[in-house]
Amino acid sequence: MDHNMSTPLGIILLIIFGIVSIAALLANGFIIVVNSHSWLKSRKFVPCDLLLTSLGIFRFLMQCFVLSGQFIYVSSPMDYMCSYAWKIDALAWMYFNMANGLGTTCLTVFYCMKVTTFSHPLFFWLKSRIDRLVPHMLVMSILAFVLFSISPVVGFWRVESSCSLARNLTANTSHSEALEGSLYGILNPLQFSFSAISFSISLTASIFLIVSLWRHTRNLKNSGIHTKDFSTQAHIEVIKQLMFFLFFYILYFVTMIIAMTNILIYGKVERLVSDIVFSLYPSAHSIILIRTNPKLKGVCTRILSSRERSS
C-alpha cells in the first residue's frame, strides 16, 4: 500500500470511498434492474425509462472502473501504474465519464421540455416531438464523442513509453507523476470540451426547469390554493431535489477541473478526496432520480416495506 494511504486519514478516506462507491453501484443497479424488468414485461421502453437506464448503465460501469482502479493501485501502486490494466481502466473511466455527462444532459433537457412552457415556436415544435427525439438524441450524442475521441485514444496507447522514462527519473518524481503528465496531456482537452458542453447545457436546462416550477408553484399559491396542497408540495419537493442535483453536479465539475490541472497526483490523499467527490455525484443524483421517479420510488418503497415486515 502507498505510504499516504496507510495513514489513519488515508484509511478513513478509503472506507468513505468504498461506502460511497457501493451506494453508487446499488442505486444505479437498482435503476437498471427495475427499468429492464419493466421492459421485459411490456417489451416497450418509454423515453424517460430509456434515458434513466442508459444513464444508470454509464454510471454503474464508470463506478466499477473507479473502484477497481483505486483498490488495484492501493494494493500494488508501482506495478499498476506501468501496466495495461491502468491504461484500460483510465481510458474506460474517461469514456464512461463523458457518456455520463451526455446522458445527464439528455435527461435534463428531456425534463425541461416536458415541464417548462415557452411561447417560442421552436420550443413548441421540440416539445411535441421530444418523445421521438430522445433515442436519436442519445445515440447521436454518444456517436459524436466517440468519433471525436478516436485520435486522442490512438495517442493514449503511446503512454507506455513514459514507464521507461519514469524509471530513469530522480527520486523526487514518482511513476504516477510522470505517467499522469503524459496521459492527461493527451486526454484532457477532449474530456474538458465534452464535459464543459454537457455541464453548460445541463445547468441551463436545470435552471429553466427550476424557474418554471417556481413560477407554477407561486401561481398556485396566488390562486388561493393552500400551501399544503399536494400539487404545490410536490413542486416544492422537486425544486429541492433539483437544487441538490445542481450542488453535487457543480461540486463534481469543479473537482474534475482541478484534477485536470494535474495538481492531484494518483496515490495521494488529495486525489482520493477527489475520487470520493467523483463517486458522490453519481450516487447522490441516482438516489435523487429514484426519489423523484414515481415508478422507481414505488418499487423502492415496496422493497423497504417488505424488508421491515420480514424483520
Rank of each mutant, 00 (worst) to 15 (best):
L143K: 05
L147P: 01
P135R: 03
V254A: 09
G10K: 07
S68R: 03
C106H: 02
V146Q: 12
I130Y: 10
I150N: 08
S200K: 06
T170E: 11
F248I: 07
K41T: 04
D229S: 15
V20T: 05
L13W: 06
N172G: 14
I303L: 10
G155P: 04
S21E: 07
V146W: 12
H120T: 12
S36H: 07
S195G: 13
V154D: 13
M137P: 10
A284P: 07
N172S: 15
H37K: 13
T104P: 03
S279R: 00
G267W: 00
Q241N: 15
F124V: 15
I186G: 00
I288C: 06
L165M: 14
V254G: 06
H235F: 05
S141L: 09
T116H: 01
F30N: 03
S128V: 14
L209V: 07
S54A: 11
L55W: 01
E180N: 09
C112H: 04
V66I: 10
G103V: 01
L13T: 09
K228C: 15
C82L: 08
F156W: 13
I31D: 00
D79I: 12
S38N: 15
S38I: 08
S36C: 12
T261A: 05
P47K: 01
C163P: 04
R129A: 11
S6M: 14
S195C: 10
N172E: 14
I257A: 09
L9K: 11
F247D: 09
L52S: 05
T292E: 03
Q63L: 04
T217Y: 01
M113I: 03
N100R: 11
G185H: 02
S231W: 15
F194T: 02
S176A: 11
S75G: 08
T255F: 01
I130D: 10
N293A: 09
K295M: 11
P77H: 02
D131L: 10
L280I: 13
S38Q: 14
L165I: 15
H120L: 13
L183W: 02
I263W: 05
R215C: 07
D229W: 08
N188V: 10
S36W: 09
S200R: 05
G18H: 11
V139T: 13
H175Q: 12
E180Y: 06
I31Q: 00
F194G: 02
M140G: 10
Y111L: 09
L126M: 14
Q191M: 13
K268I: 04
T105G: 04
